[in-house]
C-alpha cells in the first residue's frame, strides 16, 4: 500500500514536469499549427545550460531556472523570426521537417559543446528524501515537481490574465481576424514560440536534476511529449496537463510493476492507440471540414 502511494505521488510529481513541457509544445501548435519536433532538443539544451551554471558557478539548477528560461526564450524568439516565420504558410509537414532538422542541429551543437557522454546535475540534496508516514519522497523530485507547477501557473496566468494572453488566444482562434483588431500576429507568434521553448528549457533544468542526460536523449523526450499532446488533443492546454498526469502514472507503473525496459515503449504504444481510437485526443475537437478553405 505504501509502495502504491509512493508510486502515485512520485508519478504525479513527474507528471507535473511533463505537464509544463508539454504545455509549451501544445501552445506552439495551438497558435501557429507548428509541431515543434525540436522541443525535446531544447529541453536537453535547458538541462545543459543548467549544468554549466551549476558546475561553473555553483548555481543551484532549480534556482538557475531564472537564467535558463530567458535564454531559451530568446533562442525561441530568434528561431521563429529566422526559420519558422518564412514558411508559416507552407503545409504543416514542412514545419515538421524544419523543426526536425533543427532538432538534429541542436543535438549536434550540444554534442560539440558538452560531449556525447551521459551528464548529471547533482546538487547537495539529490540523495536526500522526505519521510512522511513510511513514504519516501526524494527531495529533488519534490522540489522539481513543485517548481514545475509554479512555472506552469505563471504560464497560465500570462495566458489568461494579461493583454498578451488575450492576444495569443485571439491569434490562435482566428489569425486573420486578430490582425484586423490590431494584433500583430507574427509578433505574437514569435513570443509564443519563445514561451513554448522556455517551458521546455525550464523543464530541462528541472529534469536535469532528476535524470542523467546526453544530447541524444531528445528523441526519447520528443516521443514522450508528442504522446502526451496527442493523448490530450493537439492544441489543448488543459488536455496536455491532464494527459501529462495520466502519462506520468502509466510510465511509472509500467517501470515499477512490469519492467523499466518496456517503460520506453509506453509513449509509442499510447500514440498508436489514441490515434486509432480517438484521433482528436481527450480534449481536442475535430475541426469543421468545410470551413477550411481549399
Amino acid at each position: 500500500m505504501t509502495e502504491l502511494a509512493q508510486t502515485v505521488v512520485l508519478s504525479l510529481l513527474v507528471g507535473g514536469i511533463y505537464a509544463l513541457v508539454a504545455s509549451g509544445l501544445t501552445l506552439i501548435f495551438g497558435v501557429m499549427r507548428v509541431i515543434n519536433i525540436a522541443h525535446g532538443a531544447f529541453l536537453i539544451l535547458g538541462a545543459f545550460i543548467a549544468y554549466t551554471l551549476w558546475s561553473q558557478l555553483g548555481l543551484d539548477p532549480l534556482v538557475g531556472v531564472v537564467i535558463t528560461t530567458p535564454i531559451v526564450f530568446g533562442l525561441g524568439w530568434l528561431i521563429y523570426r529566422l526559420l519558422v516565420r518564412p514558411i508559416r504558410n507552407a503545409p504543416m509537414s514542412s514545419t515538421v521537417l524544419l523543426t526536425f532538422g533543427l532538432a538534429l542541429v541542436v543535438e549536434g551543437v550540444m554534442g560539440e559543446i558538452w560531449g556525447n557522454d551521459s551528464t548529471a546535475i547533482r546538487p547537495s540534496y539529490v540523495d536526500q528524501s522526505f519521510h512522511i508516514g513510511g513514504v519516501f519522497l526524494p527531495k529533488a523530485q519534490v522540489y522539481g515537481g513543485l517548481l514545475a507547477v509554479v512555472v506552469l501557473l505563471a504560464l497560465w496566468a500570462i495566458l489568461t490574465k494579461t493583454w498578451l494572453g488575450r492576444a495569443i488566444r485571439a491569434a490562435a482562434a482566428n489569425p486573420a481576424s486578430a490582425e484586423l483588431v490590431g494584433i500583430k500576429v507574427t509578433s505574437v507568434a514569435a513570443v509564443v514560440f519563445g514561451l513554448g521553448l522556455a517551458a521546455a528549457g525550464a523543464g530541462g533544468a528541472i529534469t536535469g536534476v532528476l535524470y542523467s542526460f546526453l544530447p541524444g536523449s531528445h528523441y526519447l523526450w520528443i516521443a514522450r511529449l508528442l504522446a502526451i499532446v496527442v493523448l490530450g488533443g493537439l492544441g489543448s492546454l488543459e488536455g496536455a496537463v491532464l494527459s501529462a498526469l495520466i502519462f506520468g502514472i502509466a510510465e511509472t507503473v509500467t517501470a515499477v510493476y512490469i519492467s523499466p525496459a518496456w517503460a520506453t515503449a509506453v509513449p509509442y504504444a499510447i500514440v498508436f492507440f489514441v490515434l486509432l481510437i480517438r484521433p482528436q485526443g481527450l480534449l481536442g475537437t475535430r475541426l469543421r471540414d468545410d470551413v477550411v478553405a481549399a
Binding site: 526536425f100 532538422g101 533543427l102 532538432a103 538534429l104 542541429v105 541542436v106 543535438e107 549536434g108 551543437v109 554534442g111 560539440e112 556525447n116 544530447p215
Partner: peptide, 8 residues
C-alpha cells in the same frame, strides 16, 4: 556530431 549538423 558533424553528420548531425550536416543532415539537420
Amino acid at each position: 556530431n558533424t553528420k548531425l549538423l550536416i543532415f539537420g
